[in-house]
Simulated scan of single mutants.
Amino acid sequence: MRNVQQRSISASADRIGALLDRVATADDRLWPAPAWPPLVLDAGLTPGSRGGHGPIRYSVAEYEPGRRIRFSFDPELGLDGHHELVVTEEGPERSRLTHTIAGTTRGRMRILWPLLIRWLHEALMQDLFDNAERAATGRLSRRPARWSLWVRLLRRAGRRARPAVRSGGR
């Protein structure tokens, strides 16, 4: 499996890289929470730090400040491989933010990835790219990402499948 998504942004690589360096912090302007489960890492962007978002678990494998973060999937997930965010310079005030997933699916992930997770992941990444562009430039050069009907249905089904949490101990 290989999935690559990218966006060219009218901002320097240093500016986008500074946003990348704040992933999973209180000042994270990239990760599209609360629309998506928050990205949490137990030791920040240091190699070996463990965490993930929602049921997707991984650890920081490599970190090049301002340029690249590579995460390795938890073997229990059913994905053998990694995903990474990379910032590259395209010109003086133009950079590219690329997200790549590469790996092999096992077990139930062979079905979950193509039917569910891929579509949710792609929608999340487009929201993240919108956040990157807004944070770096103050605006979007295109219309905001819009979730497909399939993604909206999956998210609605996911909300219904979760048990309701009661407040006040009732």
Rank of each mutant, 00 (worst) to 15 (best):
residue 57 R to F: 00
residue 58 Y to I: 02
residue 58 Y to V: 01
residue 58 Y to S: 09
residue 59 S to W: 05
residue 60 V to M: 05
residue 63 Y to Q: 04
residue 63 Y to F: 08
residue 64 E to D: 06
residue 65 P to Y: 03
residue 65 P to S: 02
residue 66 G to P: 00
residue 66 G to C: 05
residue 66 G to M: 02
residue 67 R to M: 04
residue 67 R to H: 01
residue 67 R to W: 02
residue 68 R to F: 08
residue 69 I to P: 02
residue 69 I to M: 05
residue 69 I to F: 04
residue 70 R to E: 03
residue 72 S to W: 00
residue 72 S to I: 03
residue 72 S to Y: 04
residue 74 D to S: 05
residue 76 E to G: 12
residue 78 G to T: 03
residue 80 D to K: 14
residue 80 D to M: 09
residue 80 D to P: 07
residue 83 H to K: 15
residue 83 H to I: 07
residue 84 E to K: 10
residue 85 L to K: 13
residue 85 L to E: 00
residue 86 V to F: 14
residue 86 V to Q: 14
residue 86 V to R: 14
residue 87 V to K: 15
residue 88 T to H: 12
residue 89 E to C: 14
residue 90 E to Y: 11
residue 91 G to E: 15
residue 94 R to K: 14
residue 94 R to S: 14
residue 95 S to Y: 13
residue 95 S to L: 09
residue 96 R to W: 09
residue 96 R to H: 10
residue 97 L to I: 07
residue 99 H to I: 10
residue 101 I to V: 14
residue 101 I to W: 01
residue 102 A to L: 03
residue 102 A to Y: 01
residue 102 A to F: 00
residue 103 G to R: 05
residue 104 T to R: 13
residue 106 R to Q: 11
residue 107 G to K: 10
residue 107 G to Y: 09
residue 108 R to K: 11
residue 108 R to E: 00
residue 108 R to T: 03
residue 109 M to Q: 07
residue 109 M to R: 03
residue 110 R to H: 07
residue 111 I to H: 03
residue 112 L to E: 06
residue 112 L to Q: 07
residue 112 L to C: 00
residue 112 L to K: 04
residue 112 L to V: 04
residue 113 W to S: 02
residue 113 W to H: 07
residue 113 W to A: 04
residue 115 L to I: 04
residue 116 L to C: 02
residue 116 L to Y: 01
residue 116 L to N: 06
residue 117 I to F: 08
residue 117 I to N: 00
residue 119 W to R: 15
residue 120 L to G: 12
residue 120 L to I: 02
residue 121 H to K: 06
residue 121 H to Y: 09
residue 121 H to P: 03
residue 122 E to I: 04
residue 123 A to P: 10
residue 125 M to F: 13
residue 125 M to E: 03
residue 126 Q to P: 02
residue 126 Q to V: 02
residue 127 D to N: 12
residue 127 D to W: 08
residue 127 D to F: 14
residue 128 L to V: 11
residue 128 L to Q: 06
residue 128 L to F: 08
residue 129 F to I: 01
residue 130 D to V: 09
residue 130 D to L: 07
residue 131 N to V: 08
residue 132 A to L: 06
residue 132 A to D: 01
residue 133 E to V: 01
residue 135 A to S: 15
residue 135 A to N: 03
residue 135 A to D: 04
residue 136 A to N: 03
residue 136 A to C: 09
residue 140 L to P: 10
residue 141 S to M: 09
residue 142 R to L: 10
residue 142 R to E: 12
residue 143 R to S: 06
residue 145 A to G: 11
residue 145 A to K: 01
residue 145 A to T: 11
residue 146 R to L: 08
residue 146 R to P: 05
residue 148 S to E: 00
residue 150 W to F: 12
residue 150 W to L: 15
residue 151 V to P: 08
residue 152 R to V: 06
residue 154 L to V: 06
residue 155 R to D: 00
residue 156 R to A: 14
residue 156 R to Q: 06
residue 157 A to I: 12
residue 157 A to L: 14
residue 157 A to G: 12
residue 158 G to P: 11
residue 158 G to A: 11
residue 159 R to W: 10
residue 160 R to K: 09
residue 161 A to K: 12
residue 161 A to N: 07
residue 162 R to C: 09
residue 162 R to M: 13
residue 162 R to F: 06
residue 163 P to E: 09
residue 163 P to A: 13
residue 164 A to C: 03
